[in-house]
């Protein structure tokens, strides 16, 4: 800044300096991007190679290049070995429904904690935060016992036991302390007078939530959605416990199919590449929504 006001000679140098700093910044970003993207490249390239070449290529940079005997054979074999589409569909259904329900329920819970005064609020908040330090493994067995006895009204009428279903993979994960906490933190930073103004203008709590708070919550919705999506898509232990039938099996459990009998690394890579597609698609969609929400609300840092 001072360089720009002092003299002509130094002003001409200022842009250079700026350009250099920009270049360094980009260099660092590109390096980080490469570090993150190389495993992905390795996965995709390997999925195109026969096992022998795949293993020998790992000794050189060829591991990251489409060289040698390139084909889609591994993909064909992967589809033969496991019902890939079924697994991906299952995971997408379970993950998608959970993310949507979780965003709705947890944001309403966060809203109630921040904006509405009710008896027992402090106690409930303490309990909620306490759940954050309980690892899932601790409650997995009790949860299994509960889930195996719960009633459900479905196509066959009233049944008991939720094992082998979508709901057993969805319902336990709709509400979680972390997501509620994310919303609480974000809502606390919204200007309180906005909410008060809406109430004075006649809005009910529901209308305040729908028309004021949620439209301003784009960034936290995106964050919560990403975290939830990844956690759900990567579910392994729980579906392994509660889903024995192939019909409801998700992608991560499906990976087992490739470690039995004759292990084929190329097929594993092909399967992994396939199940990564929904994740990438989700990221791209969300990134756009994220930027659009920041641009339209003008809530910036």
């Amino acid at each position: 800044m001072s360089a720009q006001v002092s003299s002509n000679a130094s002003t001409s140098r200022a842009p250079d300096n700026h350009g250099l700093r920009l270049a360094v910044r980009y260099l660092v970003l590109v390096l980080i991007a490469i570090i993150f993207i190389f495993p992905l490249i390795f996965m995709i390239m390997s999925s195109l190679k026969p096992d022998g070449q795949l293993l020998s290529d790992t000794r050189s940079l060829a591991a990251f290049l489409p060289v040698g005997d390139i084909s889609f054979d591994n993909y064909v074999d992967a589809f033969k070995r496991a019902p890939v589409l079924l697994f991906v569909t299952n995971s997408v259904i379970v993950t998608g429904v959970t993310v949507v329900l979780s965003l709705v329920v947890c944001s309403i819970a966060g809203f109630a904690f921040v904006f509405i005064d009710w008896r027992g609020r402090e106690l409930m908040l303490t309990l909620l935060l306490a759940t954050l330090i309980v690892p899932f493994e601790t409650i997995a067995i009790p949860l299994l016992l509960i889930a195996s006895k719960l009633p459900w009204i479905g196509a066959e009428g009233l049944t008991f036991g939720w094992l082998n279903s979508y709901q057993v993979q969805i319902v336990p994960f709709v509400v979680d302390g972390l997501t509620v906490y994310l919303f609480i933190q974000y809502f606390k930073d919204l200007p309180g007078e906005l909410i008060e103004a809406a109430r004075v203008e006649g809005a009910t709590w529901w209308q305040v939530y729908r028309r004021i708070v949620m439209p301003l919550a784009g960034p936290v919705v995106a964050t919560a959605a990403i975290l939830k999506f990844l956690a759900m898509y990567n579910q392994y232990l729980w579906p392994l416990m509660v889903v024995q039938e192939e019909t409801y099996r998700p992608v991560m459990v499906g990976l087992q199919y490739f470690f039995q009998l004759n292990r084929a690394w190329g097929e594993i890579m092909a399967y992994l590449s396939l199940i990564t597609v929904p994740v990438l698609a989700f990221y791209l969609v969300l990134q756009r929504a994220f930027i659009a929400s920041i641009a339209s609300t003008g809530v910036k840092g």
Partner: peptide, 19 residues
């Protein structure tokens, strides 16, 4: 509740909805 009091309020921070 505020909505049933036939009042309108103007706040120091204006409190106009940014979206």
């Amino acid at each position: 509740p505020p909505k049933d009091r036939r009042i309108a309020m103007v706040f120091q921070s204006y409190a106009i909805f940014p979206h």
